[in-house]
Structures are given as structure tokens and as C-alpha cells.
Amino acid sequence: MAATIGRICGSNLLKTNSCLSRQQVNNFATSKAWTSGQKKLLASAGILTGGIGALIFALEQSVQASGTEVHPPSMPWSHKGPIASLDHASVRRGYEVYKQVCSACHSLRFIAYRNLVGVTHTEAEAKAEAEGVMVQDGPDDAGNYFTRPGKLSDYIPGPYPNEEAARAANNGAYPPDLSYIVSARHGGEDYVFSLLTGYHEAPAGVVLREGQYFNPYFAGGAIGMGQVLYNEVIEYEDGTPATASQLAKDVSTFLKWTSEPEHDDRKRMVIKAFGIFTFLLVISYYVKRHQWSSLKSRKIAFVPKKK
């Protein structure tokens, strides 16, 4: 102990060095001031970011709260489960509803007749559906356009040749294309179902122009499309009672499929991936538990070299 103290005293470690101490204090103060500035900068950035986020959230909530439409309730759809598929019988009936009711105003210009094969129709039935419409084609060798029966590769034709004709036939309102309407609307198929079944008399204070109808699920409440689904407005091929709610449910399911044709394939891949990863997890546990147990439990001994 005495020898250690002597070595420390002999190496001048206990002597006071005023210049070195002053320099260390200045460096410490400078670093302390810079750290404090950084903290203030970060705090200001955090407060600014939080304030902007809170402002955006408040504005979004105020816009949603000031909307005049009613948000659709969540329906117990059979395809909402993580591995649940679409009801293809309902999809086929929904195609019947679209063909006999909705196609008078709305188009499905991104759906071809070949897309129906294996989903709602057999190949022969889809060919018959396609051949039931006349499609403009051409030009031919003489440079003329002609009409021909549809083919599986043809897309489902719309009711109007262009947007101007559609607006002229609907008092200025443009019926949207329904190919991706479920994905394009907040609420998805819940919105479509609620809109089709949500027509009411306009409440007091709501003024509707000529050709408008009141629907609380539509933004603003005034919609140019009148109620089109009533009990027994069509007859299903399979004999299902065609109530208004059944019609709305089936066409909503059909439009869910047109918006996501890969719906069932995606969930099928989830099932396959779950099975594969479960198998790999079991194999990994076996390798970890049994093959590596000898390595994890080994004892490493260091034997000094003999001189």
C-alpha cells in the first residue's frame, strides 16, 4: 500500500495543473452548452411535429364530424374472416342483379366475360353471355367498322357511348363505373348495401331539386339515383326469394368480387403460407432443441501450455 502511494506521488498525478484544469472546465462547459442546445432543438422539433400531427387529426375529425352522410354499419359478411372465401352463389346472383337492374346506368368496363369463368359461370355459360351482346369491331379490310357477337375476351359493354351521353340521360349526373366501386368507397360493401337500402323521405329542412332523392348514406344526402331495388323486382334463376335486402346483399358481394378478383386466391395463399411456416417452425424447434443441445451444454476448458 505504501509503495503504491509512493508511485502515485512520484508520477505527479496528485499535483495541481491550473492550465489543464481550466482547459478541462472550458471543454466541459462548451460540451454542456452544446448538449443543452441540442436538447432544445430536439424539443422544439418534437413540439412542432406533435402540433402539426394534432392539427391534421383535428381537421380530419372536424371534416368527418361536419359531414351530412351517415356512416354505414358493419355487416356480418360471410367473406370477412381471415380465411373465408366469397359466396360464389351470391356472386352469381349479384351478376344477375347487375345485368337486369344496374347495367341500365352503370358500366363494368374493367371486367371481361372471361373473368366470369370459374367464378360465376362455366365457360359455355360465359360464352353465351358474351354472344348475347353485339360489340363494335374493326376496321375491316375496307376500313369500315362492324358489329359482331361478343367473345370471352371482350369487356362487358357500358350503357352509354361516352360521359356526355351518360350525363345527358341522367339530368347531369354521371353514373360511376362499378368495377372498383367497393374499393373506392369508404366502408366498402357495407356502404354499397346501406346505400341501396337506405332511401327515405327527406326530413324537414332538406331541400331536394328535381330529379334528386334523399339517402342519408350519400354525401350531402341528395342523390341523383332513385331507389332501384324492391321486393321481387327480378326473379333469381336458383329460386332464391328476391327481397330488396337479398338483392342488395348479392350485388354488393358481386361488386366486392369485381373490385378484388384475387380475393379467394389471396386467402388461399394465406392458408398455404400458414401451413408452410408452421412446418418450418416445428423443424426449427427440433433442430434448436435436439441438434444444438450438445453445443449449448458443452463446457470449454482452457488448458495452459506446458513449458
Rank of each mutant, 00 (worst) to 15 (best):
Y160L: 09
Y160S: 09
Y160K: 06
Y160D: 12
P161M: 11
P161Y: 07
N162R: 09
N162E: 14
E163D: 15
E163N: 13
E163M: 10
E163W: 05
E164G: 05
A165T: 14
A165L: 06
A166P: 05
A166W: 06
A166T: 09
A166G: 06
A166Y: 07
A166R: 04
R167Q: 14
R167L: 04
R167E: 13
A168P: 01
A168C: 02
A169Q: 11
A169F: 08
A169N: 11
N170G: 05
N170A: 07
N170W: 10
N171I: 06
G172V: 11
G172S: 12
G172Y: 14
A173M: 06
Y174C: 07
Y174H: 10
Y174M: 14
Y174I: 12
P175R: 02
P175I: 09
P175S: 11
P175Q: 09
P176Q: 01
P176C: 01
P176M: 01
D177Q: 13
D177Y: 14
D177V: 13
L178Y: 01
L178Q: 00
L178R: 00
S179P: 04
Y180P: 00
I181R: 00
I181F: 01
V182I: 15
V182L: 05
V182Y: 00
S183H: 07
S183Q: 14
A184G: 07
A184N: 14
A184Q: 14
R185L: 10
H186Y: 12
G188I: 02
E189Q: 13
D190R: 05
D190N: 15
D190G: 08
Y191L: 02
Y191Q: 01
V192R: 00
V192M: 15
V192K: 01
F193P: 00
F193Y: 15
S194N: 14
S194L: 04
S194W: 03
S194Y: 05
L195M: 12
L195C: 03
L196A: 10
L196D: 02
L196K: 06
T197A: 08
T197K: 04
G198P: 11
G198Q: 10
Y199V: 08
H200T: 13
H200P: 02
H200R: 13
E201R: 11
A202G: 08
A202T: 11
A202H: 05
A202F: 08
P203Y: 03
P203H: 03
A204G: 04
A204C: 02
A204F: 04
G205L: 12
G205Y: 12
V206I: 15
V207E: 12
L208S: 05
R209A: 14
E210M: 03
G211K: 06
G211L: 06
G211D: 04
Q212G: 04
Q212C: 04
Y213V: 08
Y213M: 07
F214R: 04
N215C: 08
P216Q: 09
P216M: 04
Y217N: 00
Y217F: 15
Y217M: 02
F218I: 03
A219H: 13
G220Y: 13
G221T: 11
A222L: 08
A222T: 08
A222Q: 13
A222Y: 11
I223T: 09
I223F: 13
I223P: 00
G224D: 11
G224I: 02
G224K: 13
G224R: 12
M225H: 10
G226P: 10
G226F: 05
Q227R: 14
Q227C: 12
Q227L: 07
Q227S: 07
Q227E: 15
Q227F: 05
V228P: 01
V228L: 15
L229Y: 10
Y230G: 15
Y230L: 09
